[in-house]
Design a protein around this nucleic acid. Structure first.
Lengths: 132, 132
DNA sequence: TACACAATGTTATATTATAACAATTAACAC
DNA sequence: GTGTTAATTGTTATAATATAACATTGTGTA
């Protein structure tokens, strides 16, 4: 079978919601908010999330167990992700910096292990929160 | 009170075990293995883990919900962590690369947000697993 | 001693995620 | 269209990870 071109029903419902809220959101929060669309069980959400992460439409913020839509329209497969996270207001932004991504993509560890994926999370205080 | 110099009883028990196994280990696995030492409840483990992470004795591998002892003896506070993770055998190594850490410590995002901490996880296949 | 704070012990519960299995749907070869 | 295969769905139950709340005990120091 050819690679899937279109999203399935549940995948589309979950993606639509994540894109609408436009900030990291947790799986069970997604579940509560898409029940009116007919999604009833956690697994239906988690299965859609797995696929959406796999094809790069969304990313998982590992330190927060939350999911966010990918902003880089060209990021078809989520192999290289970087985020800034404000520890005050929990605002998360995807970092899109070609020098950084180039540097990390080419990084070689001392054992010569070849990497095909990375995830980087920066923590700090955003401008608003650093004034408070 | 002055800053704590020594670990408390539970903190020491948990740290001893994590250092002994010498690979990432999950909280409930720690619990099972230290019950003979008198630790009975998840919270006792999680409280010790929180403190040990805070003072940099251990790190959390976010993508695996696992904890590992810090190998950098000078890493008093865990503000800057990088790991390589083999997706085949799940072997995890802490990366200690001064160029990488310098680069990331000084990274400034476009919004000018100042970071005080980061965590980087690389994924790939280790030598053994890439042969298979 | 008395104070403040860190750490402990304990029960219960919240949150995040997957197992197992049956049924249905979609893409493709023929 | 028919048969085949894989993807997706639906459903119930349960596993795995983590925290809330509150009472108690220990430790350093004024």
């Amino acid at each position: 079978m050819l690679k899937q071109e279109t999203l399935s029903k549940n995948q589309q419902i979950v993606l639509d919601y994540i894109e609408k809220v436009n900030e990291p959101i947790k799986a069970y929060s997604i579940l509560h908010n898409v029940q009116k669309k007919g999604i009833k069980a956690p697994l239906q959400v988690y299965r859609a999330l797995d696929k959406l992460v796999e094809i790069g439409k969304i990313h998982k913020i590992e330190s927060r167990n939350a999911f966010v839509a990918c902003k880089n329209s060209n990021c078809q497969i989520s192999k290289a992700t970087a985020f800034s996270i404000c520890e005050g207001c929990e605002e998360v932004s995807e970092i899109s910096d070609s020098k950084l991504s180039k540097y990390l993509k080419n990084f070689q560890d001392k054992a010569g292990m070849k990497f095909n994926k990375y995830n980087l999370e920066f923590f700090g205080l955003c401008k608003k929160c650093s004034i408070k």
